[in-house]
């Protein structure tokens, strides 16, 4: 760990101003991921701007009938919030499938969006990693890649190769719910649709998201539609709790008169961002629940999936998880 200075601003403007005027500065909220990475020398911020004094720690109704989740609300307080549990149970379930009770008590909603990958090579300075050290190569692609991505990877050029996944559970549900991220920077406030917030590795695997330097996430807006009736979150992992997803699936359905009228499917653990494919979801619209062809949807969602050896099993596992999650959401299967 390197030396760093520390500043705890009292308002948003000084937080942003301080970050911009100090090279190598980083925001810190719950610190559940950043501190670990600092201890491993993966992150070496010169300054930590602690935003915990800022007032983004509430959950409020939006004008459009949705909910605004403050960036500094903890994951635990969000998951157990009455309005979240009742109106967005998918989100509540996804959050509680992640980490441990202790971590969820510290981790914030904003911080959850900025979790870095759990790729072994990203964490180990003795190995190459384009995400950690641009241009150094990817250790995982020919190495131990059990937990790695099968969709949207970057594997053509050694200097930009990356098969890392985004590790969040919460973000998979937020992607399915079409959440909107509110950020504030020097230029003022803007909103980013959730699908555009995280990015695929492409030619810049070191960039996890599309936020600009100096911008701070202040809230996550949930649209009015919360799919409280027909939803499922399945997380498959190497032990019953406290492990990252090998594959996770968030499904949200709207069903009227036994016909599917809206469908969202997001996958976790398979790509550099929560994976959605609107045309695959569209296959479900208008179908009768009892005869819907979930297998074809699963095939369409995972189209183009590519395994790298240890993780090839994820392709089949993802398909099976999609089918099961659709069955559970449609109440064709009991939810355990």
């Amino acid at each position: 760990m390197t030396n760093f200075s520390y500043f705890r601003p009292g308002d948003l403007n000084s937080a942003i101003g301080d970050l911009i005027t100090h090279e190598g500065a980083k925001f810190i909220a719950g610190g559940t991921n950043l501190l670990d990475l600092m201890k491993e020398n993966v992150e070496r911020p010169a300054r930590l701007v602690d935003i915990n004094q800022l007032s983004f720690n509430s959950i409020e109704e939006t004008e459009g009938g949705g909910l605004r989740l403050g960036a500094l609300m903890t994951n635990a307080d969000t998951a157990y919030h009455e309005n979240v549990q009742n109106r967005y149970p998918l989100l509540s379930h996804a959050i509680l499938a992640g980490a441990s009770a202790q971590l969820r008590n510290m981790a914030t909603n904003g911080g959850n969006l900025f979790q870095r990958t759990r790729c072994y090579y990203f964490y180990d300075l003795a190995t190459p990693c384009n995400k950690r050290e641009p241009g150094s190569g990817c250790g995982a692609i020919r190495g131990f890649n059990r937990i790695h991505a099968i969709l949207g990877t970057s594997d053509q050029k050694p200097e930009t190769a990356c098969i890392a996944t985004h590790p969040s559970d919460m973000c998979v549900a937020l992607a399915a719910l079409d959440a909107v991220v509110r950020v504030t920077g020097l230029a003022g406030e803007r909103t980013i649709p959730f699908a555009d917030f995280h990015r695929l590795p492409g030619d810049e695997p070191w960039r996890d998201n599309t936020i600009n330097p100096g911008e701070l996430v202040t809230a996550i807006d949930l649209p009015a539609k919360g799919f409280p009736q027909y939803y499922a979150y399945i997380k498959l992992r190497d032990r019953a709790s406290y492990a990252f997803a090998l594959v996770s699936v968030a499904v949200a359905l709207e069903i009227e008169n036994n016909r599917i009228t809206d469908a969202r499917i997001a996958l976790g653990g398979v790509a550099h961002k929560p994976w959605r494919k609107p045309d695959a979801e569209a296959m479900l619209i208008g179908q009768a629940v009892s005869v819907a062809d979930f297998q074809s949807v699963a095939e369409a969602l995972t189209e183009g999936a590519k395994g790298y050896g240890h993780n090839t099993f994820k392709i089949e596992l993802a398909k099976r998880a999609i089918v099961r999650a659709l069955q559970q959401a449609a109440k064709l299967e009991p939810t355990p």
Binding site: R118, D124, T127, G143, I147, D238, A240, S241
Partner: peptide, 29 residues
């Protein structure tokens, strides 16, 4: 069911060298 130290032969190095990725049972198991 869970425990395994995995060597990456490119580097001759055990890669899952943390308790997050070297799995031992949790209470729920």
């Amino acid at each position: 069911l869970e425990e395994e130290s995995v060597l990456d032969h490119q580097f001759g190095r055990f890669m899952n060298h943390s308790l997050a990725e070297y799995h031992v049972p949790v209470n729920a198991d």
